[in-house]
Amino acid sequence: MTSRRRPSWLDIAAVVAVVGALVFAMTSPRVEAQGDSARMLFIHVPTIWLAYLAFAVTFIASIAYLVTKKLNWDLIAGSSAEIGVVFTTVAIIGGMIWGKATWNVYWTWDARLTLTAIMLFVYIGYLALRRAIPDPEARARRSSVLGILGLVQLIPVHFSVTWWRTLHQTNTFRPRDIQMDGPILAALLISVAAFTVVYVALLRHRYELAQLDLAAHEAAAATEGPVAGDAVSAPSIGSSGA
């Protein structure tokens, strides 16, 4: 094992991208209706996009595990869900700060906010399920079911603002009709791209860690196995057989 590795090009790219996106976010023109509080946009939208992306990757990796039965797919599913939970939390906290500045409340039980909170708790449940099952094969099999079913809720989360009347504004990105001025849109897309690089870098590190975890588990199982067996076979010395 290498002890202390230098940061990879991907890590450096992630940091550079975020710093660059921050410059665009802070220098983009002011949003006419909201003023500077609308700069929360450049955190709020990319983080919830990452949550969607991360849970979609969990969904795909869970299917891939069930089809191929290769544990590596399950490790990707678990790693991605963990990142998704973190970024859902950041999106909610960022949204609360933004909400206080514009709506005048941190939190309220409208459809978008409630369903997003439920989504967060379902995926926290997914992570809890993974921790509850020590055997890698059983863990992969059971959590992949939840990893697949969990994605369904992204549809009501995303369309809640269209389906029901909410405090949260409706979707700005409508097919072929984007309700945003060009310079703000450009800064937002740069921010989304930068956060996506961060996601890829984080996923790679978490996946490598998960592989090490699995290897450690298998090594422990290989050495512990005979020890437990010895304890069982020990009484047979006294008896006639074996």
Partner: peptide, 23 residues
């Protein structure tokens, strides 16, 4: 109790949105 419900439009101070022609 009063809450603000702002819309989904992000206009700059020259009051434009990206797809202004369609609009």
């Amino acid at each position: 109790t009063m809450l603000i419900r702002h819309d989904e439009q992000y206009r700059t101070e020259d009051n434009q949105i990206y797809d202004s022609v369609d609009h």
